[in-house]
């Protein structure tokens, strides 16, 4: 039997049923829609992280509600609070224990830059977790509102897939 010289007609015929895409994009879509954060509360921001996961804000709408207590099962670390020098070694270990691919969200001013706890002569606080490991999304606020955390997760999704899934809400 002779092979068809051109299979473009065949592709056209089955296009309603079969979609072709790059595997990377498919994986990115899957990852973006089921981010598993590490249950890792440090300070005030952790309460807003809890609020984001609870009834009113319901992080489950965006597929990111499966907070894992073990770093081995998590793929996004939300650093919610102040990191000090005593904690820095532990948090770095946690980051190293997370399997690739992994992302980091620095939630709140403390995680971004040390926030209100930076002054000349300070002896304890790490001035920003980006000094410890790479950070993908920064969410400012002291503490940021749960909406801000959700927006941060959407930004991370955007970073993964290259396009935004939800419309941007502009303040009036």
């Amino acid at each position: 039997m002779e092979a068809p010289e051109d299979n473009s007609q065949l592709l056209k015929d089955c296009s309603p049923y079969v979609k072709f895409a790059k595997l990377d994009e498919l994986l990115a879509l899957g990852r973006a829609n089921s981010l598993w954060p590490l249950t890792f509360g440090l300070a005030c921001c952790a309460i807003e992280m809890m609020a984001a996961g609870a009834s009113r804000f319901d992080l489950a709408r965006f597929g990111a509600e499966v907070f894992r207590p073990s770093p081995r099962q998590a793929d996004v670390m939300i650093v919610a609070g102040t990191v000090n020098k005593k904690m820095a070694a532990a948090i770095k270990t946690l980051y190293d224990q997370m399997p690739e691919p992994k992302w980091v969200i620095a939630m709140g001013n403390c995680a971004i830059s040390g926030g209100p706890f930076v002054f000349p002569g300070q002896y304890a606080v790490i001035e920003g977790v980006d000094k410890l490991f790479p950070v993908d999304v920064f969410i400012p606020g002291c503490p940021p509102r749960p909406e801000a955390l959700i927006e941060g997760l959407l930004k991370l999704e955007e970073k993964l897939t290259g396009k935004r899934r939800w419309p941007v809400v502009k303040p009036e």
């Binding site: 440090l42 300070a43 609070g81 000090n84 005593k86 532990a90 300070q122 304890a124 606080v125």
Partner: peptide, 9 residues
Amino acid sequence: GYIHRMQEK
């Protein structure tokens, strides 16, 4: 001491 934030200082 894992979240000592120097409040008194």
